[in-house]
Design a protein around this nucleic acid. Structure first.
Lengths: 184, 184
DNA sequence: ACCTGAACACCGTTCAAGT
DNA sequence: ACCTGAACACCGTTCAAGT
């Protein structure tokens, strides 16, 4: 049973990467597997859950060793890993953000950010606020960036650069705000 | 022609507010107006454009007089207005964020933020970075907040408060980061 | 346990034809 | 100019029935 579920998720990622999110329908996935649409519900209960599983698998594949030790370096490390994991697959940002919005999966980056901020000495009542601020920044920036990248590769006008440099600078802005509130 | 377009948008907002985004289909809207689905395309070319028009109308309705004079107070003012406008209608956050993601409409808040940051003395190359950071923060926070509110009113478990106080504190975090880079 | 087949209740968009 | 009617190519989910 576990085997089949992972199988469905793996195929879903492959289909997603090749045809995009709009094509990640149960019917297309079923056709791809040579099976009836209704058969998918035996492995993953519904579309939302399947999308969350896809998001989690993307993040898991993008996992990298942790090198940083200082709290703020750890924040940057988590954010870079998250951004790269989202950019690594077609429509990856949208999938991860959607899953997060519905409170499904993708909770690991948030936990790592929270830990880093706590260890940094940020007052308890600001740890959640800071974590969310950073997460929203990464999500928003990466969604915009990926859309611009995909639009550019499709021949459309790329009106926004917002590459890695802008990402880092936006992050530093928030980090400076947090540093100003660290008690030590 | 203009009249009909506005009429479609106004009805769309009413339907949206009563039945939610998932019900804002061309077919339902057409039924609501006592018309064939294909008739809508004579006033608004497609669904995406209609959604952008709805987003713009929401923001326009939420417009308030500008009182603040200091640049950072103006930023807070714009953000509060934006948040309130999104929260004022069902699924408002999602509609506005989606429209913004596709680069359609909703450009006015970004322009006002940019102006405020420029007037504040933030270096030119950081104005866009700061504007986006703030916008992403507002979008992310408000989307989460509205989802929690709607889930709570639907009887589900509200696992996240994240009300106005958290909103302000997240914003202050970024503003502190920006203040640290203002040359004056 | 896993899957089929069929149905249910929907989508957005196009386009010839009418008034 | 505005709308109908019909079609095209899809959706997610449910559920009795088969193996």
């Amino acid at each position: 049973m576990r085997y089949h579920r992972n199988d469905v998720v793996a195929r879903a990622i492959a289909v997603l990467d090749e045809y995009g999110l709009e094509s990640l329908s149960m019917r297309r996935l079923a056709t791809d597997r040579g099976v009836q649409p209704s058969a998918l519900n035996h492995h993953v209960p519904n579309k939302q859950t399947r999308l969350a599983a896809v998001a989690d698998e993307k993040l898991a594949r993008g996992r990298r060793p942790r090198r940083a030790t200082r709290w703020d370096e750890r924040v940057v490390e988590v954010c870079r890993e998250l951004r790269d994991a989202m950019l690594a697959y077609r429509d990856g940002a949208e999938v991860v953000v959607t899953a997060h919005t519905f409170g499904l999966g993708a909770g690991e980056p948030a936990d790592r950010l929270r830990d880093a901020l706590r260890d940094g000495g940020l007052p308890d009542d600001l740890v959640d606020v800071g974590t969310r601020a950073i997460l929203h920044l990464v999500f928003g920036h990466t969604t915009e960036e990926q859309l611009a990248l995909q639009a550019a590769s499709a021949g459309a006008i790329d009106r926004a650069p917002g590459g890695p440099a802008d990402f880092e600078r936006g992050l530093e802005l928030v980090l400076d705000g947090i540093r100003a509130r660290v008690t030590s």
